[in-house]
Amino acid sequence: MKVLTFSTLFPSSVRPGHGIFVETRLRELLKSGQVESRVVAPVPWFPSTDPRWGEYAKFAATPRREQRNGLDVLHPRYLLAPKIGMTSAPLTLALGARAAVQQLIDEGFDFDLIDAHYYYPDGVAAALLSQWFKRPLTITARGTDLNLIPQYAMPRRMIEWAARRAAGSIGVCAALMEVLRGWGHDPARLHTLRNGVDLARFRPLPQDAMRAELGVDGRPLLLSVGHLIERKGHHIAIEALARVAQQRPGARLVIIGEGEERTALQALAQRLGVADKVRLTGALPNTELLKWYSAADLLLLCSSREGWANVLLESMACGTPVVATDIWGTPEVVAAPEAGRLVAERTGQAFADAIEALLAAGTDRCATRRFAEGFSWQATTEGQLRLFQQIQELRAHA
């Protein structure tokens, strides 16, 4: 079976950590030996590779084509216009990718279906490509594409059109597929295939040794991982630390990630008197995340919106339980006491209370790891193969 993977959320040599969960799922699928794939991962056009432009310069520096972990990846450019980009992106994305898709066909990769990731704008663009190239389509929803973006009228209409065109919609958690079900889409086309965790990459390392290597002390050591944006709730993690530290002066918080909220988070820590207890590391590769997960006592995920948060399983796979907001797909991950605690109210006090309750009850890092071992990629791979085979059979019959 030949599958064209389509998504702007895909790593490159310039941004190796970008959308790594899409690459991981594809690599696990290819291990089955039943699928061959090429990847079209468009990036916004930008004229300069000058480093002073930051992330924009990385767009320009992205190679047009590269090999990643045995995958052939094309990076065509598309126009992402300021201000109007949100509504125009699906069309410009599809137009920018069209020549790359035709190139693969001309080279002999006459694919059977398009497997797109992220409903907007990627899924809508893929629906256009599906129409132009007359191939069936699957679209995977991953979080804000269905729990945030549909608040805007025009994107919602385009998402609904794409969902009607798709032969199958996949959600990384059941809550995302409930959105489409609530809009009246055919339940037979809605599938929940959760993300797994790479149990070889994320594994327990000796906690004391990792603390020594990373130069951290204090207990409990709390960890908060994700882009430094309001939705991820790092400010709530700092507020929770301030309360926990009143009873546990040795408490420390490490925040891993980069983004627009960095200065505001530093100011908040200063204002709450815990600046000396908060460390911001910036963004780190997975090889370093492994060490921090193993060093920490608890992972905090104070998000307001999540589809299926990979950091939860990554932390658990390293033996570290979590305290997370009770939202969307998170209850499907934090589904047992050994996994951690869910917090109904997204406040510093509520998180502090949950942290204290979990620490008081005691944690069993071996039990947390065993829980994570139930989330391998095998079931997801089997679900994809079943879905793709059904689509192929229906297409052949038609």
Rank of each mutant, 00 (worst) to 15 (best):
L223K: 03
G218F: 02
L180S: 03
H117G: 06
D208S: 10
A188F: 01
R165K: 14
L148Q: 13
L221M: 13
H227F: 02
D110H: 14
H227V: 12
K134N: 15
P206H: 10
P155A: 11
G182W: 00
L199T: 04
G184R: 04
R219I: 03
R142P: 00
L113N: 12
N195S: 14
Y118E: 09
R157V: 12
K134E: 15
L223C: 08
K232F: 10
G218M: 07
R231Q: 15
Y152A: 14
D122A: 09
R135C: 05
I238G: 02
V225P: 10
S130K: 11
T192W: 05
G196Y: 04
Q207P: 04
V172C: 03
H191I: 06
L113P: 10
A116I: 08
T138F: 04
A209P: 04
V172R: 10
I159H: 04
P220L: 01
M154G: 01
R203C: 09
S130M: 08
H185K: 11
L228P: 01
A125S: 15
P121M: 09
H185A: 08
R219M: 01
A167V: 00
D186P: 01
T192L: 08
Y118I: 13
D110Q: 14
A153G: 01
L190R: 07
R135E: 11
R194F: 00
T144I: 10
A127E: 07
